[in-house]
Amino acid sequence: MPANPKAKLVENILDLKNIAQAPTRNGFGEGLVMAADEDQNIVGLCADLTDSTKMGDFARKYPGRFVEMGIAEQNMAGVASGLAAIGKVPFITSYAMFSPGRNWEQVRTTICYNDRNVKLIGSHAGVSVGPDGATHQAIEDIALMRVIPNMRVFAPADMIEGKKVTYAISKISGPCYVRFTREKTPIFTTEETPFEIGKAQVFWHEAEGKKSDVVIFACGPLTHNAILASSVLENEGIGVRVINMVSIKPMDTGAVIAQAKEAGAVVTVEEHQISGGLGSAIAEVLSANHPVPIEFVGVNDRFGESGEPNELIGHFGMAPEHIVEAARKVINRKQEI
């Protein structure tokens, strides 16, 4: 099976029945406590969602370093900036819709323009929030954050990567945004899977002796859907690579250009509006450096709605079969050129 051995992914990556699952936000909870154990300056702020954003373990372990903000996300961003001015390293959490959704301008001015060392944690991103419906499904947050200078943007693929990202951003200075999700999703990376800020990782590689026909750039838990799609394509004799784009900004532009050159056809996959997200970021890089046909898998200029997570992923066209379809289509487009 051509999962890239260097990525050290789990053995049963295609076995949906037996693969272990957990929400990515659990990785934040664990990573924050790990980081806080080492760094006294780490403080936590939350706006009346302490347990569901997984800040609870930190708040119970370090009550003196936790501030309950009440339902006041705009104030939370400003207060975090002030804490950072005094040398603290604030992690601030809410649902992504409210932070950085509601408090976007405060994030821009008080955190990014001032270049303060604040870490924004947006949980419950994406339509996979499910029954709560459109008001609670942030599918604009990547766009909102990557457009601000000084901000770095990450979308971990599973719980373990979520933990690594949380720990890594505690070690660098400056504003960061990490997008987490509510639902359980497959844990398909391992502690040994490489992670580095600003680096893309090849998670799936075409079989020996084949060539790359299409490259899929994915982020978040949908990266697993991209892998499921690849195994289908592989069986049809198509050479596929899947690149995990956890680090959306800074982006590994060298890798993006090199992979696109080899394959000549690109699919992007994200649980986000097509407009402004990962796909747009990739298109910006490729159209300036090496234009190739691209198909975008994501939400196409619509609001979310209530439903079960998997129903919604299907409804909005982000299931493995939709990725397969996008790959076939982009390969055809390449051949027409």
Partner: peptide
């Protein structure tokens, strides 16, 4: 209530 396709969205629409 709160189901796929319902008019009774998880939060009112």
């Amino acid at each position: 209530l709160r189901k796929y396709g319902s008019r009774l969205q998880g939060h009112p629409h």
